[in-house]
């Protein structure tokens, strides 16, 4: 299945989910002629139409591509494969961000940011040397000093270190 067909299906699923969630919008005595569900219904319809167009376009393109099947992988195909190979890395990056979100309320800003910088640096290929923790701690102290102390931007102190890192 090519990108357009897949995108079309995702759009249709998204439209279905959005329409389902529209059912939870409560009625109001202040309702106007269009109502709170007017625009959502119009948007659902638009997304269904666009999803169908993409799906059909993708299927037609797939059929045309099959008719002109190349003997080897084309440049675009190789490019796609290279990009697909990087998807797990992007997900790993996201997982580090998600871990930061979970740990932030417990460990507080200073410790969480140090862990974040260290983890991302290692994940992105920094050599496993003493420079990683040193850079992570230095970076966290720098951010904490600039944002929390200098600019007065509030960041969570954390449950574990509350009182002496805020």
């Amino acid at each position: 299945m090519n990108k357009d067909s897949l995108s079309g299906l995702v759009l249709l699923a998204l439209a279905g989910g959005y329409y389902w969630a529209t059912g939870f919008i409560a009625d109001s005595t202040l309702e106007d002629e269009v109502g709170a569900v007017g625009l959502p219904h119009a948007l659902t319809l638009a997304l269904v139409l666009l999803g169908l167009i993409l799906l059909v376009r993708g299927l037609l393109a797939a059929r045309a591509a099959a008719a002109h099947a190349a003997t080897g992988p084309g440049a675009a195909r190789v490019e796609d494969e290279e990009r697909d190979a990087r998807v797990p890395r992007a997900l790993g990056f996201l997982a580090i961000g998600a871990a930061y979100v979970v740990l932030l309320p417990y460990l507080g800003y200073l410790v969480s940011v140090a862990l974040l910088i260290g983890a991302v640096s290692l994940f992105e290929g920094a050599p496993r040397r003493w420079t990683v923790p040193l850079t992570a701690i230095g970076g966290a102290l720098l951010y904490w000093a600039v944002f929390v102390k200098l600019l007065g931007v509030n960041q969570p102190a954390g449950l574990l270190f509350q009182g002496w890192l805020s």
Partner: peptide, 15 residues
């Protein structure tokens, strides 16, 4: 080095 830069930018965004 790009790895450190990525770490610092990610931390900046989330902060």
């Amino acid at each position: 080095p790009r790895p450190y830069r990525a770490g610092f930018i990610f931390a900046l965004i989330l902060s």
